[in-house]
Write a protein that binds this DNA or RNA. Structure first.
Lengths: 232, 232
DNA sequence: GCGGCATTGAAACAAATGTTTTATTCTTTT
DNA sequence: AAAAGAATAAAACATTTGTTTCAATGCCGC
């Protein structure tokens, strides 16, 4: 519930973030958003021009909120080892994505993010440059510090994708994960635990990808391991 | 292009899979699907009752295709070590998700899958039980064989999620990954390379999560690593 | 060849929806 | 206090869209 003191504009943004996320841009209707925000339909067009204008504003609102409450570099101090920095970075991702203070995972806002990753709208260009690219750059810095040298983008980029992929998958496939694993405990209560797990898993992965024998292991494999069967 | 010999029903399923995936259930229109399939609008309602019926049929069609061409256990033989089995399993996921013989990643079919993970429709229940759950069970078997003992679901489930999450993230966030990393090379040409990378990364992760000191590392951390900053 | 059934084509319908218009109320400034 | 502009409310409009209807066409067994 949004407190009744919030301004019309804010109430619209909150309601729209939730509904756009749950239903998607096309399926969400101005009327439902207006109803949820306790606002007249025309107020939306008045404040945000049209549906697309509202959507762009919502996207900015949601990302601003997420990265203000949980900044990329939040909680990371200079005295920490690079490994500890990675821990805090990953935990920050989980809190930003899944906590109720952030995008709240499977709720509307969380799915709004996932929808943009899946099918970026024009309004997402801005967000990418302002929030996501710096976030990835920071992760790259941490990774170089952990490895102790710069292994080049051929290694750094997939490493970053593997680490971020684990976090995001938890957030965006939450309903299926819950359904498959049968785990009914609310994910928000396990954020620290999940973050520690992904952290340790990733440290192991980084080590194996960058140790002395890694170059051999990453070579194309001999025919011992055939391609997956294709039945045409 | 669907060859003109394909039956009406097949052409509708192909076109609908693509358009539903690109646009989502609500935004996709029967008229556009009919046009793309070179079919009259009424033919769709005739063959599939209504839009929901068509969607359910498309979902079944797409999953059947993916798991027929690239079965869960495809390419895995008894003589292989568990580690090699994991390699083939991961490569199978990449081919199923990203190759043009499978769901073709960012194309329509690939996004259809991702949309279901994100916001499952009622039609997805079936698919979960028939395709996804056995797939996950098989991965669990491989993991137990690699570890050499059964560490219990507390470890196995997050391990499975971390491994599958990496694969799926590559598929479903492809546009953003490409945009962020600036990598313009077509992903289909690098499937083996990506699979090998994720495989090695995961082997490292599994090792670190299940070695002798792992239990200590997974404990809640001392206040050396503070929570991410919250600015209310 | 013909009757019966399945399939396709074209038009019509009703509901939903983004947007605009016009009137009214609230707020601020002078 | 009056006036002007901002904000909200209610209704109307034009378009889109899922579905239905009904006639036309193709297909198959006798």
């Amino acid at each position: 519930m949004s407190e009744p003191t919030a301004s019309t504009k804010e109430r619209i943004l909150e309601a729209a973030g939730d509904i756009f996320g749950r239903e998607g841009f096309k399926a969400a209707t101005i009327r439902r958003i207006a109803e949820a925000a306790h606002v007249n339909i025309a107020a939306i067009n008045y404040h945000f021009r049209d549906k697309e204008g509202l959507y762009a504003a919502v996207l900015e609102h949601v990302f601003h909120l997420g990265f203000t409450r949980f900044p990329s570099r939040g909680g990371i101090e200079t005295g920490m080892t690079p490994e500890q920095q990675l821990h805090v970075f990953i935990r920050g991702m989980f809190y930003r994505l899944l906590s109720s203070e952030g995008w709240f995972g499977y709720s509307g806002k969380g799915r709004l993010i996932a929808r943009e990753l899946l099918a970026p709208t024009p309004a997402f260009e801005n967000i990418l440059d302002r929030y996501i690219r710096p976030h990835k750059e920071f992760l790259t810095e941490i990774l170089i510090a952990i490895i102790g040298r710069d292994p080049g983008p051929q290694i750094l980029l997939p490493l970053a994708v593997s680490i971020i992929g684990q976090c995001i998958y938890y957030a965006f496939a939450a309903p299926v994960i819950k359904r498959i694993t049968g785990d009914e405990s609310p994910m928000e209560a396990r954020l620290d635990q999940l973050a520690t797990f992904v952290w340790q898993f990733s440290l192991g992965g980084i080590a194996r990808i960058t140790d002395d024998q890694a170059a051999d292991r990453l070579q194309p494999q001999p025919p011992t391991t055939p391609s997956p069967t294709i039945k045409p």
